[in-house]
């Protein structure tokens, strides 16, 4: 429990929610990262510019943060092979399921979408079950 950081989690969360509110009010788009990224290849050319601008901010802001405030702690739990497998599953799953933690978990729940509530419940439960198996059944 020593790693519990409720204040910074709430503040960071409010910023994420603020970003979702901003994108909806200004562009009328859902701030779902998998949808925005997946749409770069799939959307018509006129629909690509804002996606690339959003992604530039998403990558650029952490870069600026690391350069000014300092690099946040990052501890990778998975090795290269597991990262590739996990990335593949996340890519396929988020496109099939039309969303990830941001699109379903934040925007969808904020919109009280039954579809997003269902998706969030399923991916949270599956992720927790996966961690349980890898840490306490196999790795225990």
């Amino acid at each position: 429990m020593s790693s519990f950081t409720p204040a910074s989690a709430l503040l960071g969360g409010a910023m994420i929610g603020g970003a979702a509110a901003l994108l909806w009010l200004m562009l009328g788009r859902i701030a779902g990262i998998s949808g925005i990224l997946g749409g770069v290849a799939q959307a018509p050319p006129a629909d690509r510019g804002w996606r690339l601008a959003f992604l530039a901010g998403l990558v650029g802001a952490p870069m600026a943060y690391a350069a000014t405030v300092g690099r946040p702690a990052i501890t990778m739990a998975a090795g290269p092979a597991l990262l590739v497998l996990a990335g593949l599953l996340v890519g396929i799953g988020t496109r099939l399921g039309s969303g990830c933690t941001s699109g379903h978990g934040v925007c969808g729940i904020a919109r009280l979408s039954p579809r997003s509530l269902a998706a969030t419940g399923v991916f949270m439960a599956t992720a927790a079950a996966t961690v349980f198996v890898t840490r306490h059944v196999i790795g225990g």
């Binding site: 990262i33 998998s34 990224l37 992604l55 998403l58 990558v59 650029g60 802001a61 952490p62 870069m63 690391a66 690099r71 946040p72 990052i74 990778m76 739990a77 998975a78 597991l82 990262l83 497998l85 996990a86 990335g87 593949l88 599953l89 996340v90 890519g91 396929i92 799953g93 988020t94 496109r95 099939l96 399921g97 039309s98 990830c100 933690t101 941001s102 379903h104 579809r115 269902a118 998706a119 969030t120 399923v122 991916f123 949270m124 439960a125 599956t126 992720a127 927790a128 079950a129 996966t130 961690v131 890898t134």
Partner: peptide, 29 residues
């Protein structure tokens, strides 16, 4: 389709602890 996608995503998220937003933010770091 929604449920299958959510299960696969949850599996990948649980294996690495990374979802799409943080994955891209980490590139910036």
């Amino acid at each position: 389709r929604l449920i299958t996608g959510a299960v696969l995503f949850g599996l990948g998220w649980g294996l690495a602890g990374i979802c799409p937003g943080p994955a891209l933010a980490m590139l910036g770091l």
